[in-house]
Design a protein around this nucleic acid. Sequence first.
DNA 1: AGTTAACTGTACTGATTGGTACATTGTGTG
DNA 2: CACACAATGTACCAATCAGTACAGTTAACT
Lengths: 183, 183
Amino acid sequence: MARLIAEKADIVPLLAEVFRQYGFEGASLARIGEGTRLGKGSIYHFFPGGKEEMADAVLADIDAWFRDNIFIPLAENAEPRAGIARMFADVERYFDSGQRICLLGVFALGSERDRFAARVQAYFAAWIAALGAALQRSGHSALEASELAEETVAGIQGALVLSRALQTPASFSAALQRLQRRL
Amino acid sequence: MARLIAEKADIVPLLAEVFRQYGFEGASLARIGEGTRLGKGSIYHFFPGGKEEMADAVLADIDAWFRDNIFIPLAENAEPRAGIARMFADVERYFDSGQRICLLGVFALGSERDRFAARVQAYFAAWIAALGAALQRSGHSALEASELAEETVAGIQGALVLSRALQTPASFSAALQRLQRRL
DNA sequence: AGTTAACTGTACTGATTGGTACATTGTGTG
DNA sequence: CACACAATGTACCAATCAGTACAGTTAACT
């Protein structure tokens, strides 16, 4: 039995969900198999490096998505205010109104940070830089822009924590609106 | 060999560090043994319920600390502004200027949330309620106060994520100052 | 049709997992 | 000094862990 559908690109999002749900240590190969409907043979065929390579591929995939869909539009949009508005809309959709976690955020807090420090660091730095650039082009000073950007990204991460903790997804959307209003 | 020093109260903070460092799933009994310098015999003597009971004791301990040292002073201090200032100072010290994680935050994001949902929810709800009460007494409307409180707690959690991700502890202190200034 | 290589299931490994059982040891109390 | 029990180390358990090996199978290309 072979080659049913499996393409590496199709597997990565499924892997992402498993890591999101269980974390790196909690994502056992059994759970990964469940989540991807793939046996060990297939999994190790695509990711000879094991869990580490899987997680890395997932992070790279998320990173690329944010870069293409958020960071670049944010930094390049001719209308900085429009780019920022689009960021908030996309973020709300991506995190499924607070029901979906930021895997980079989870990894930043856990012991996974040491393993994937470079990716985690680059992701947040890129986000802050892109938002900061847009804010600066919309009239803020360089210092103001970078502080506001950091505050906003932190606010989003914090809102994810809170809406998960309180089990009130609605509070995530409300928090996003407040953050947007402040800019 | 028996009764060297061990008191349950002395063990809990050590356990907390292990859970902080490795998360719930990652905190194996081997690591717990390392972190507490206790063998399985002792550990299961104090916590017959296993890891679940250990984590619960840790969460209860943290919860109690925040209640006594932050929530209650916040809600009861005759000078609400002074209580708020003290909260920020204590928070900065507790989280070791961003080098120490909020275990409740980590559990909120991970799959541990389901297991400890009640504790996690209660912790954040209590924090927001206490800060909200102080803000209301300092002149804000009920709605304003509760929104500001939620924003601030989220901001603190987000700042922890960011300072860990970017590996810049200093940014945590800066974020705290900005949050305080806004209130 | 035949070759090739990508893909996949199964069986296996040694190590580690959380947890139990229990005999032993030390210590505070009588 | 003796007793009871809290505290501890050790041996053990079945289950699961990540990872390997490999023989089959299938699809694409000639």
